[in-house]
Design a protein around this nucleic acid. Structure first.
Lengths: 107, 107
DNA sequence: CGGACGTATAACCAGCGAGATATGGATGAG
DNA sequence: CTCATCCATATCTCGCTGGTTATACGTCCG
């Protein structure tokens, strides 16, 4: 289930939220409390960010008793990579066209 | 001159602005007027978006008489690709650590 | 059972940013 | 020279969102 690049860009645009995601990528599964300790914002703010990340498919939660463990879903970044590759692809395609044109003009 | 991922994410988070950038990637250099015709917003809005894109290093302008031609700077996307690769890299590193641990436990 | 702990939700507020309109400034056409 | 055209800037408004505090809900412990 791939999220649109639009949602991904919007979700990752906020520095606090992206830092939370980066933390989960670097250090793996963490509880809300652990994430809050490093986030520099209040616990409700962290919970809200995690909610947004979850909606974007970038994290998944694992409730365990009274704490919730979150972990990154690295696959969710695929549309981002695709988009970037597409942009570079368009670029090169036009470059190739230019090369062809120059080649034809050369004859 | 590489722009920080932060600026890139924030710049590309807006759909209108990203659409303008995509148009420049797909179809190459275009004037403000041509971009405005497709953007669905007013000309000043397009000019402002182009200003933001330029600040992020994603586009360059080429003034020619009374019209300005803009074109995409595809290289500016490099930090984005790097960031994505890093995230996937952390993911795999932790995966490898887990494999090592399991291997050692197996002995 | 009661109280402490961990997390989520509610309600509210402030700032930012994307949009519009109006205008200025430069250039090309007639 | 005059006027139309193209773009950029100024100014304002309004909606969204990220932050806070307060509170509710569920869970572990004594």
């Amino acid at each position: 289930m791939h999220t649109s690049p639009d949602i991904l860009f919007r979700t990752l645009a906020d520095p606090t939220r992206r830092a939370i995601f980066e933390g989960l990528c670097r250090d793996g599964e963490q509880t809300v409390g652990a994430l809050t300790a490093r986030a520099g914002v209040s616990q409700p703010a962290v919970s809200k960010h995690l909610g947004v990340l979850k909606l974007a498919g970038l994290v998944s939660d694992r409730p365990a008793g009274r704490q919730t463990h979150y972990s990154a879903q690295i696959g969710a970044l695929a549309p981002l990579m695709d988009w970037t590759r597409d942009m570079a692809g368009f670029w090169e395609a036009r470059f190739d066209d230019l090369e062809d044109l120059l080649k034809r003009m050369d004859q």
